[in-house]
Design a protein around this nucleic acid. Structure first.
Length: 497
RNA sequence: GGCGGCGUAGCCAAGUGGACUAAGGCGCGGGUUUGCAAAACCCGUAUUCAUCGGUUCGAAUCCGAUCGCCGCCUCCA
């Protein structure tokens, strides 16, 4: 079985063959840290975190890099507006981003290089392009000459002459309208901290160059997967390819994976869009994490194929929340009937003492195979999640059919736990089910005690067939946001959502 | 204008030439269970994949045209 991925470069699904057998290098374009991250910034990291988890499961040794662009026009402008040193603002926003990543369960990032820490490498790289005749200093800037790259435009299907031929030369500094800055001369009003000495005078890197330099440094001149949002295909990724392949005379990234953009009211979420600006506050990632939690946002992102856009709305989140809780309820149920948590227990279904249940064990194995099959096909997390739902329903049915709740036998109990464990393990390949959801119980001992009293009284009523009073207690508690659930073993309560 | 993507049930969303008489979720209807609920389970919910035409033994899947939506071509995950 081989893994297939859709490659933007070829426009087709291709068999995934890493540059070095057994190893995979992934570079994902991270944020420019000038404003708090919004929901769209979560998409790439979540998807690639799942991809890394999955590739690791498939036996690859994966190195994943996400860059932080911390020297850039907008950041400088924003720092000035806030009257802050550039790197103070950059650090704050980076911390905001990292905090969001943690809460989303994005734990697989191996390196987060910052542009500001690679200035000498960037300068050397620019010099290398000048030496090759593919770049030229002009004023205090240095530009890449797009005509030096024969196949410029191969990623986004545009040729310099067709695309830029008509356009006015905006800057008299450029020879060709499509040329782009590798190095930008410092402007007088910019703070000293972003003025770097170079052979071309004081300046700072252009936008695309840092990704070429840092990816090469950390992953090699040719690496496996380069990712980012679809809006980066042109010009950013196109220019990365141009400068990298011109510098090294070798292929840059082998596979280009681009995720769909997150939308709100069918429009792309973008910080610079004035129309979207009024919703921006709502789209701030940390705020959404407070409201919905990391697992649910992650679930939202993975419940769609990564190349499709996601329309964000509260109504959709409510539906997703209901769906996701199916799993949580099953895990609780498993813990209730087996006394062991599928989150923590390491018992595998194969190891479980489940004599006589071979058919069930085989069926669960079938779900696992289907999961792998759909993930192998361009990381189809949406289809993989569908398999998880089917498995969950199967486990619930197993519990029902075998009366595991009321008349448990050792074998059926162990099979329930083992199957639940399979579900947890598959979910974790997507980064779901990492830990139990926070139980919404009151937490205070006093409340626990009062609830026990109420439940006892209600139990008494029920025994005496005084259902009117029993229901009254239950209804009144609902008004207070507390739900009672009667089970064979007794009544449980929890704070409702 | 150029490049790219999309249009599948009330909604979200897989599937991109034959096992599709189209996954999965939300919602809705019916049933089992329950004192009643909740949860769980079972059944039903698109003869049809924007529209029209073509290729093929066979198309949601390929080709062409039309309509609609979105993204990129300036910064953007």
């Amino acid at each position: 079985m081989t893994i297939r991925v859709y490659n933007t470069l070829s426009g087709e699904k291709e068999e995934f063959v890493p540059v070095q057998p057994g190893k995979v290098g992934i570079y994902l374009c991270g944020p420019t840290v000038y404003k708090p991250s919004h929901i769209g910034h979560a998409v790439g990291p979540v998807i690639f975190d799942a991809i890394k988890r999955y590739l690791t499961f498939r036996g690859y040794q994966v190195t994943w890099v996400v860059n932080i662009t911390d020297v850039e026009d907008k950041l400088i402008a924003e720092a000035a507006a806030q009257n802050l040193p550039v790197f103070t603002l950059a650090e704050r926003i980076t911390e905001n981003y990292n905090d969001a990543m943690r809460r989303l369960g994005v734990t697989g990032i191996d390196h987060m290089p910052k542009a500001s820490e690679y200035i000498p490498d960037i300068i050397a790289y620019v010099q290398r392009l000048i030496d090759k005749g593919a770049a030229y200093p002009s004023g205090g800037d240095v530009y890449f000459d797009v005509t030096a790259d024969r196949d410029y435009g191969k990623l986004s299907n545009r040729s310099p002459d067709e695309q830029f031929g008509q356009r006015e030369l905006q800057s008299g500094q450029k020879r060709h309208p499509g040329d782009f800055a590798l190095w930008k001369e410092s402007k007088p009003d910019e703070p000293n901290e972003v003025k770097f000495a170079s052979p071309w005078g004081q300046g700072r890197p252009g936008w695309h160059i840092e990704c070429s330099v840092m990816s090469m440094k950390l992953l090699g001149e040719t690496f496996d997967i380069h990712g980012g949002g679809m809006d980066l295909i042109f010009p950013h990724h196109e220019n990365e390819i141009a400068q990298s392949e011109t510098a090294t005379d070798r292929p840059f990234a082998k596979y280009w994976l681009h995720n769909g953009l997150t939308r709100f009211n069918t429009k792309k979420i973008a910080k610079s869009d004035p129309e979207m600006a009024k919703f921006m506050e709502k789209m701030v990632l940390t705020r959404l994490l407070d409201e919905y939690g990391g697992e649910l946002l992650r679930y939202l992102i993975l419940s769609t194929h990564y190349r499709s856009p996601i329309d964000f709305s509260d109504a959709e989140m409510a539906a997703k929340s209901k769906a996701l809780s199916t799993f949580h309820r099953l895990f609780e149920r498993i813990e209730r009937v087996t006394g062991r948590s599928p989150y923590a227990d390491l018992l595998t279904l194969e190891q479980a003492p489940v004599a006589g249940l071979d058919a069930f064990v085989a069926e669960v194995g079938g779900f696992r195979e289907r999961f792998v099959q759909v993930m192998d096909d361009d990381f189809n997390t949406a289809a993989a999640i569908a398999v998880l739902f089917e498995l969950a329903a199967r486990v619930n049915r197993f519990i029902d059919e075998n009366k595991v709740e009321s008349a448990p036998q050792d074998t059926t109990r162990m099979a329930t736990l083992g199957a639940g464990r399979v579900l947890v393990e598959l979910g974790r390949l997507l980064g779901l089910f990492l830990e139990p959801p926070v139980r919404r119980s009151g937490g205070s001992e006093k409340l626990d005690a009062v609830m026990r009293v109420l439940i006892d009284i209600r139990q008494h009523c029920r025994k005496n067939k005084d259902f009117a009073t029993a229901d009254l207690i239950r209804d009144k508690l609902v008004e207070e946001g507390i739900t009672l659930v009667d089970r064979p073993g007794g009544t449980e309560w929890q704070m409702s959502q």
